[in-house]
Computed example of a mutant assay.
Amino acid sequence: MNFNVLSPVSDSVLAHNELLSEQALGRKLKIHSKQNGIPDLDGVKIAIIGVLENRNDVNYIGEELQFDTLRKSLYALFPGNWFTQIADLGDILQGDSVEDTYYALRTTLSVLIEKQIIPIILGGSQDLTYANYRAYDSNAPMVNIVNVDSNFDLGDSSIDMKNNSYLGKIILEEPFNLFNYSTIGYQTYFNSQEEIDLMEKLYFEAYRLGEVNNTISLVEPVMRDAHIVTLDLKCVKASEVGEKQKYSPNGFDGKEICTISRYAGISNKVSSFGIYEYKPLYDDEATAMLIGQIIWYFIEGVNCRVKDDDFKDDINYQKYNVLIENEELIFYKSIKTGRWWIEIPFLPNVNNKLKKHTLLPCMHEDYVEASHGKIPERWYKAYKKNSF
């Protein structure tokens, strides 16, 4: 594979790394350096890639990106009791055009995903999610995206794509590989009523900030069904980040955003994770450290993954049937982890996206509500989406 599009980690970061404790995370990484080139990826499970592209930010005024401060913060952290090998492959530089950068990112991610290496993408503007999504064209027939964001980013698909309108392009451009899109932590006043109505009409999932603040565990089953997780740093409240990064007084605090990141890591399906809208400032160590900790918790989650969704052998699960009106809802509970799923039936007479019945991650509360005669909303939306 040709990784020529990747620029090595800077010498100043590598010099800083040499001064760290032998136990620090940075000393345990396989790092792309000018001296040694791209590291051998045999045995690597997670690869960090920076993308120095922000020209499609609607507020772009020519500022340059760099991830040196961020890397220094991440490298200085101590790893948990981890068994996964991690590589830092350096940065993808801006291409002659934004499309060139998209192409470089898409082809790089496609190879990593095929090798079952999970990329952690550092951005840059969030329209890079579009290139991330396109990397799955040859790897997965149907893709689920979870966006941790205060905005839906639907935008106007009739005009050129920007960081606040990439979703419209994903939905409307062939090949149509998007099955589900979920937004975690949206804030109503940042989204037009038309966008909110369209999310509802497409049976996409949207969880308001207050809803997630009250019950953060509802994020777990949503993440369990995701292939791509894209995180916009504007969803973090202004008091948690540096001067240039401040966006809204309301948002997730540091603890919540790290919990959400860990849920993404724990998911057996998540195969790429992007952190976007980083706006570096020379003395802003708080934002760099927060991103470092978000990445740390994602890696921690990956190390805690448990294969618990094998329902071929009934010694691995308990099955529950619930009758509501004319519907029979079938729930499965993993004996190993206690996590729950609900079956989405196959509709043979409909030109649907699913070729067989499939299992949708859910919570124990969904089973309890179904037992009291209430159809779970996640099941309803998945069922309706499958009926298109």
Results as ranks from 00 to 15, higher is better:
Tyr181His: 13
Cys235Asp: 05
Tyr133Ala: 07
Thr69Gly: 01
Glu365Lys: 06
Lys115Phe: 03
Pro348Arg: 00
Leu109Asn: 02
Ile46Lys: 08
Leu29Tyr: 13
Gly90Val: 04
Phe252Ser: 05
Glu174Pro: 15
Ser110Pro: 04
Tyr282Ala: 12
Asp68Pro: 01
Asn4Met: 13
Ile145Lys: 06
Tyr133Asn: 03
Ala226Lys: 03
Leu70Gln: 02
Asp225Cys: 05
Trp341Thr: 01
Trp379Gln: 08
Ile118Tyr: 00
Ile159Gln: 15
Phe176Tyr: 15
Gly43Ile: 00
Lys307Arg: 05
Gln66His: 12
Ile145Cys: 11
Ala286Asp: 13
Glu285His: 13
Leu70Asp: 00
Lys237Ile: 11
Asn352Ala: 09
Glu300Leu: 14
Gly185Met: 01
Asn268Gln: 13
Val9Ala: 04
Ile171Tyr: 04
Arg134Asp: 01
Ala370Trp: 09
Thr107Ile: 11
Tyr263Asp: 04
Thr183Asp: 01
Met161Pro: 04
Arg208Lys: 07
Gln293Asp: 11
Thr107His: 04
Lys162His: 14
Leu109Thr: 02
Asn386Ser: 11
Ser271Ala: 13
Leu172Glu: 12
Arg27Met: 11
Val270Ile: 01
Glu18Trp: 05
Ile294Trp: 12
Thr215Trp: 01
Arg71Phe: 03
Lys319Thr: 00
Glu285Val: 10
Ser192Phe: 01
Tyr380Thr: 07
Asn139Thr: 02
Asp88Cys: 06
Ile159Lys: 10
Trp296Val: 02
Ile38Ala: 01
Ser125Gln: 09
Ser21Tyr: 08
Glu240Ser: 12
Leu354Glu: 03
Asn321Ser: 15
Tyr181Pro: 09
Tyr166Phe: 15
Leu209Glu: 00
Ser182Asp: 04
Tyr75Val: 04
Ile299Val: 11
Ala135Phe: 08
Phe83Glu: 15
Ile38Lys: 03
Lys355Phe: 01
Leu41Lys: 04
Ile315Thr: 10
Ser157Val: 10
Gln293Lys: 13
Ser138Thr: 09
Ala87Gly: 05
Gln85Asn: 09
Gly155Pro: 07
Leu172Cys: 15
Ser125Phe: 03
Pro361Phe: 12
Ser10Glu: 03
Thr129His: 07
Asn132Gly: 13
Lys333Met: 11
Ile344Val: 12
Asn326Ala: 05
Leu233Pro: 12
Met1Ala: 14
Leu347Pro: 02
Lys34His: 06
Ile159Thr: 15
Tyr133Val: 00
Lys162Asn: 15
Arg262Ile: 07
Ile266Thr: 10
Leu41Met: 11
Glu277Trp: 06
Glu211Gln: 12
Arg208Glu: 10
Tyr136Gly: 06
Tyr181Gly: 14
Asn4Ala: 14
Tyr317Ser: 00
His372Arg: 07
Ile335Thr: 11
Arg305Ala: 14
Glu22Asn: 07
Ser125Cys: 11
Lys355Ala: 14
Lys115Tyr: 03
